[in-house]
Amino acid sequence: MSHGLRIAFFGSSLVSAWWNGAATYYRGLIRALHARGHHVTFYEPDAHGRQEHRDLQDPDWVRVVVSANDRGSLDACLDDAFGADVVVKASGVGTFDAYLEARVLELRRSGTQVVFWDVDAPATLERVAKDANDLFRPLIPRYDHIFTNGGGAPVVNAYRELGARRCVPIFNAVDPDTHHPVAPEPRFAGDLAFLGNRLPDREARMDAFFLKTAEALPRSRMLLGGGGWEDRVVPANVVRLGHVYTQDHNALNSSVRAVLNLHRDSSARFGFSPATRVFEAAGAGACLITDAFEGVEQFLEPGREVLVAHSSEEVVEHVKRLTPEDARRMGQAALRRVLAEHTYAQRAAQVEAELGYRADAGRG
């Protein structure tokens, strides 16, 4: 009889989504792995103000270890992780990343697999490509698996060229228990909402696809959520929401007529990288407008389950033509699609298969 895998997971944060877009991914996936009988310990640093902005108390489906932001505390976590069946180092922990990338490989033993889980593969690959002396580059062939939360053949091929033994996308998805339709709330009423932190390789797209749309539709109410936009000059019809906590995402997605998804530049170049917000919005039955990216049809059908825009002019046309009935119909179609094909339960089953785990036989 199987007792599940013991998984040690080093990541940015599970308990806080503060400047941490991977939180939804970690939560959905780890919760689904727990439901399938696995035991996960998530190690995260007390850094970047995340513990002060927690939006999740320690859940019963994972053991959370918050370490002080120093090497000694990290070494204690590595000692604690020794003996796990699977050891995961996620990208973008935010402190001691290079140190962790090397040290987790020392935890390999007979029966232990070591995984690098890249939650921003386009950024990692571009960084490594630009620097022949990047410390992560020679470590890539030493990991048993490279998992990514986005990217199709371009990401897989790039990692293989760097010597990866195996690279497999485990895409973002939806957890229907946490992201689902709710009653609309007046505070989130509007015609178009964009939710995303202010980052250098996203701002130009935000200007082009969101602010220009707001300028072209001055009678529309536009909602802007996320950190870093406080000092940004915006049109008068844009309502700044600031950081929108996870518990409010369903209300936002269920209240506004359409939700805008914008890729960071690197993600758009590699394609096949829909963000967690795409699945959050679809899971709430929201009508989604996304900037164009290669592979979109692998996740949602353009024109029926999602609206695709190549320019601000196309966003404007979508918003102008979109009736509440059309928005509802498209949101419901997207909801049906993600529940059928893009849940974290399905992603967790894929992870098991990649790790060679069979429930009837234990670890493979």
Rank of each mutant, 00 (worst) to 15 (best):
R166I: 00
G152S: 03
E161N: 09
V87M: 00
T95K: 12
V119Q: 15
G152R: 07
W117P: 04
P122I: 05
E106I: 02
I170A: 09
G83L: 10
R137C: 01
V104K: 03
R137G: 00
G94Y: 07
E101F: 07
D134I: 02
G83W: 02
V156W: 00
G83N: 03
D144Y: 05
G150K: 08
A129M: 06
D177R: 15
W117M: 10
V156A: 10
E161Y: 13
E101T: 00
T95Q: 12
Q113D: 08
D175C: 08
G111I: 11
A129W: 05
D131V: 10
A84F: 07
E106F: 01
W117R: 06
V168D: 00
H145A: 14
R160V: 11
V88E: 05
P141F: 07
D80H: 09
D134K: 06
E101D: 13
L100K: 01
V156R: 13
C167H: 06
P122T: 04
D175G: 09
G151A: 05
T112C: 14
Y143E: 00
R142F: 00
L125D: 06
A98T: 05
E126R: 10
R109E: 09
K89N: 03
V114I: 00
P141H: 11
A81D: 01
V119K: 14
V128W: 07
S110E: 14
G152E: 05
V86H: 02
D85L: 05
H145F: 12
V93K: 13
V93A: 11
A132Y: 08
R103K: 11
L139G: 02
D144N: 07
G111T: 12
I140M: 09
K130D: 15
G151V: 02
F82Q: 07
E106N: 10
D118C: 15
L135Q: 08
D175T: 10
D131N: 12
R165M: 04
R142W: 00
L105E: 02
F116M: 13
F136K: 03
D97F: 05
A129G: 08
C167W: 04
D85F: 02
I170V: 12
R160W: 09
P122D: 03
E161R: 13
S110A: 15
Q113W: 13
D131M: 07
A153H: 10
D175L: 05
P176H: 12
Y159C: 14
E101I: 00
P154Q: 09
S91A: 11
L135P: 11
R109T: 08
D118T: 07
A129P: 09
L107P: 07
